[in-house]
Design a protein around this nucleic acid. Structure first.
Length: 344
DNA sequence: CATTACCTGCAA
DNA sequence: TTGCAGGTAATG
């Protein structure tokens, strides 16, 4: 599930691989993945251009070319980026390819075809625009790790918001880059219930949430993201999945208090939290909230999907690679060999 | 503002 | 065979 730390990792690892490279064109076998312009024009526009910059904004990867064009890539749920020799084995899940002048290719592998690419124009002021002069990032909220995203600024944005904290954190116009994993983890760190209304937060809790969001995202980047299901970076898997407290850990002990982590469904999102550490104030135990929480008590225990260690003594060692899907045979080997340890 | 569509692989 | 995973655009 690429969120800010995962996309940041992809951008950081992609940068040295393609910076200064000349693009030879672009091709796709799934035109719906291309927002704008149509693939043939897209290819003609990027052919011969050199890569000048690779950066992340929200969950987008932006690749600046030397004529002011900007390739925008959204990996969404299952997109993966690799830079491989052009003669590397074909992969049926690679739907977007940028051949490079050096004889390699930037390949976007995407099992579920949710990923999107688009071509925009860099503006003198630094923004980007697409057809009709529209900035595709106009509705995106502030970067939570930007130096100017102070606790005061966070408080300003919270002011007047009455929604529950979990959906609010997922709202990209409220804050850029937070998704389901890091929303749950930030709320756990801040000891705030996901159903808690933003309107009732005390100043100390607002500050705790601000700190929690920034610390969990920073740690996620340091650990190169959470490799759950399909996410992997150009340089291989991350390891943040081994340091999550609640996400997809239903039934396992809360690292703080030992009580079992619970799961509720909010909207269509799984939401994981500790019912003891993250209490909902009595005033917010509405009928609707109580119904959601009652359903959680009936929820069957579900383990994490990134590792499934055998139970019993001696269950130590490298995690079974077969448990995770989405790793192409052509992926570069993880530096330093297989991860030891595996589980927590 | 809330719900549905997009997609496929995999577990139940 | 069904349902679930969920980021985001589109629709009601």
């Amino acid at each position: 599930m690429p969120e800010l730390p995962e996309v940041e990792t992809i951008a950081r690892e992609l940068r040295p691989l393609i910076l200064g490279e000349r693009l030879a064109g672009f091709r796709t076998d799934w035109p719906r993945s291309v927002r704008h312009p149509e693939p043939a024009l897209f290819s003609a526009r990027v052919a011969g251009r050199r890569v000048e910059r690779v950066e992340r904004r929200a969950k987008w990867i932006l690749v600046d070319l030397d004529d002011g064009a900007v390739i925008a890539i959204q990996v969404k749920m299952t997109g993966q980026l690799f830079v491989l020799p052009a003669d590397a084995p074909a992969d049926p899940h690679v739907h977007l390819v940028f051949p490079l002048g050096s004889g390699r290719e930037l390949r976007i592998r995407d099992v579920r075809k949710f990923a999107r690419v688009a071509l925009y124009e860099r503006q003198p002021g630094g923004g980007i625009v697409g057809p009709g002069g529209v900035d595709p990032l106009a509705e995106i909220g502030p970067e939570p790790l930007a130096p100017d995203f102070t606790v005061a600024r966070f408080r300003e944005r919270l002011r007047g918001r009455r929604s529950r904290l979990k959906p609010l954190l997922l709202d990209q116009s409220f804050l850029a880059g937070v998704g389901n994993i890091y929303a749950d983890e930030a709320l756990w760190r801040a000891r705030l219930h996901p159903l808690r209304s933003a309107a009732t937060l005390r100043p100390a809790q607002e500050r705790a949430l601000w700190i929690a969001i920034r610390s969990v995202l920073t740690e996620g980047i340091e650990r190169r993201g959470s490799s759950i299901d399909d996410y992997t970076a150009p340089g291989g898997d991350g390891e943040m999945q081994e340091h999550l407290a609640v996400y997809q850990r239903t039934g396992t002990p809360c690292p703080r208090c030992g009580r079992p982590i619970r799961r509720i469904v909010l909207g269509i999102r799984s939401t994981h939290f500790c019912g003891w550490c993250q209490r909902l104030p009595a005033a917010e135990r509405s009928a609707g909230n109580r119904a959601l929480l009652a359903a959680a008590r009936r929820t069957t225990r579900r383990g994490p999907r990134w590792s499934e260690l055998p139970t019993g003594a001696g269950a130590v060692g490298a995690r079974p690679a077969a448990r995770r899907k989405g790793k192409p045979d052509t992926a570069p080997a993880r530096a330093g060999g297989p991860a030891a340890g595996g589980s927590r």
